[in-house]
């Protein structure tokens, strides 16, 4: 009869910020991520205006004082391409992660709470998980054209079932808590019970899952760009900068090293951030089996 139950972890306001600052890995990765994001947002200021000028005379210059990351096969400044490309890659990642989280949460909450809906929706989710994400994205983009919306939608589609499963599992356990029963007993309608009493318990795992999705979405966008079904070549993103560098990388490795490095650093930073947040928000899992995204 010791004071059990007292030690429940209770994410309250401020805990997230505290989590960011108290863990060195989380701190480093968020600083790195912030730097990459800022460099993308202020790419125009950092690289000047004549960014994508095609200058055949200057093609495939190695990195130096004039062009920090060298130039590509068309004589474009790779530094500028990478910074501007980050804008699009990060935007796709962010949009896909957030919309995946929102849609997946909504479906997960409802299916977890309404028992009769559960088998139907979960079989649909199983079906969605059975479709290879990249294949679906290639199909969708070639069908409707390579717009931002189409690419985000394609990536989101693949992430929804994962979020749904996660949220549903949390709902299934929380709905049995007596405080949820108590709320039902007070005559609170289902929607309010879901939003007030069940959703808050999903937030911590959701934040973690969203960071993983963010990293996965950036990679997916890069893969699409690399396969040539992403954004058109004149709009730089990490994916299509890599794709263009592929043709010349034996002579000019810097054309793919620079965007590759940014991509790798971003994904690593996001994943480390997710790991750190998970350890902080869910002490039960800390340093136990790592879930790779």
């Amino acid at each position: 009869m010791s004071a059990t139950g007292q030690a429940r972890s209770m994410p309250q306001r401020g805990v997230l910020l505290e989590a960011l600052l108290s863990n060195r890995v989380v701190l480093c990765s968020s600083v790195l991520l912030l730097a990459i994001m800022l460099s993308a947002v202020f790419a125009g200021l950092l690289t000047g205006t004549d960014t994508f000028l095609i200058r055949p005379r200057l093609r495939l210059r190695p990195p130096g004082s004039e062009f920090w990351f060298g130039t590509d096969a068309l004589g474009r400044d790779v530094f500028a391409l990478v910074l501007h490309g980050g804008k699009l890659s990060l935007l796709v990642g962010l949009l896909a992660a957030v919309s995946g989280a929102v849609i997946g949460t909504a479906i997960g909450l409802v299916t977890g709470y309404l028992r009769w809906l559960d088998p139907v929706v979960m079989r649909i989710m199983d079906g969605m998980m059975a479709i290879p994400g990249i294949l679906f994205a290639v199909a969708l983009v070639s069908l409707v054209g390579p717009s931002l919306m189409a690419i985000v939608a394609a990536i989101t589609f693949a992430e929804i079932p994962r979020v749904t499963r996660l949220v549903r599992s949390v709902v299934l356990s929380v709905r049995e808590e007596s405080y949820v029963r108590a709320a039902e007993g007070l005559g609170i309608p289902p929607l309010l019970v879901l939003l007030r009493h069940i959703l808050p318990s999903c937030i911590a795992p959701l934040i973690v899952q969203t960071t993983y999705m963010f990293a996965a979405a950036i990679l997916s966008e890069a893969v699409l760009g690399f396969l040539g079904v992403g954004f058109p070549p004149d709009i730089p993103s990490w994916g299509n900068v890599l794709a263009e560098g592929r043709a010349v990388f034996q002579r000019a490795p810097w054309t793919i090293i620079a965007p590759g490095l940014f991509l790798a650093m971003t994904v690593m930073a996001v994943n480390l951030l997710g790991d750190g947040l998970r350890d902080r928000l869910d002490p039960r899992l800390s340093r136990a089996a790592k879930v790779s995204s």
Binding site: Q6, P11, S178, Y179, R181, A182, G185, P189, P200
Partner: peptide, 26 residues
């Protein structure tokens, strides 16, 4: 449905585990 929710205010339950029957976040 609504009729059931309306009825529920007349009969209230008190649960066994006081650590679990209050929403920890509210």
């Amino acid at each position: 449905g609504c009729v059931l929710r309306d009825f529920r205010r007349h009969i209230q339950m008190i649960f066994q585990d006081p650590y679990k029957s209050l929403n920890p976040r509210r």
